[in-house]
Computed example of a mutant assay.
Amino acid sequence: MDQRSLLLEGLSDAIGFIGGALIGYWAGQLLGLDIFAQGYGNSAIGGIVLVGLGGGLGLQIARRWRNRQKPDKEN
């Protein structure tokens, strides 16, 4: 792998993860879940779970997008 493809891989992973985590955070805010609440109550845990799920889903979407950008090397 060359440096350009490694840079594209790292940037797309970072953008996907951060974007997904932000979407999870905003969804939690809309549902009334606050990840910054005092203690580890249900609200905080629910918000943390949404941020984690959003980040993971964003990363998977970024990886699938990157794989679709690659030319087919089957032939």
Rank of each mutant, 00 (worst) to 15 (best):
M1F: 07
R4C: 02
S5Y: 06
S5C: 04
S5V: 06
L7H: 04
L7P: 05
L8H: 13
E9W: 12
G10A: 13
L11M: 13
L11I: 12
L11S: 07
S12F: 06
S12E: 15
S12N: 05
D13T: 08
D13R: 06
A14S: 08
I15R: 14
I18V: 11
I18Q: 02
G19T: 08
G20Y: 07
G20D: 14
G20P: 03
I23Y: 01
G24N: 08
W26L: 09
A27G: 04
G28A: 07
Q29N: 14
Q29A: 14
L30I: 05
L30K: 08
G32F: 12
L33A: 12
D34M: 03
I35Y: 15
A37G: 01
G39S: 08
G39D: 00
Y40P: 05
Y40Q: 15
G41H: 10
N42T: 10
I45G: 12
G46S: 11
G47S: 03
I48A: 12
I48M: 13
V49A: 15
V51K: 13
V51L: 04
V51I: 13
V51D: 07
G52H: 12
G52C: 05
L53E: 06
L53N: 06
G54K: 05
G55N: 02
G55L: 03
G56F: 02
L57N: 09
G58M: 06
G58T: 00
G58R: 00
G58P: 09
Q60P: 01
Q60A: 11
I61N: 02
R63T: 00
W65H: 10
R66E: 15
R66D: 07
N67R: 09
R68I: 01
R68N: 14
R68S: 12
P71C: 07
P71V: 07
D72L: 13
K73R: 14
K73V: 10
K73G: 04
K73Q: 11
E74Y: 03
E74P: 03
N75H: 06
N75D: 09
N75R: 04
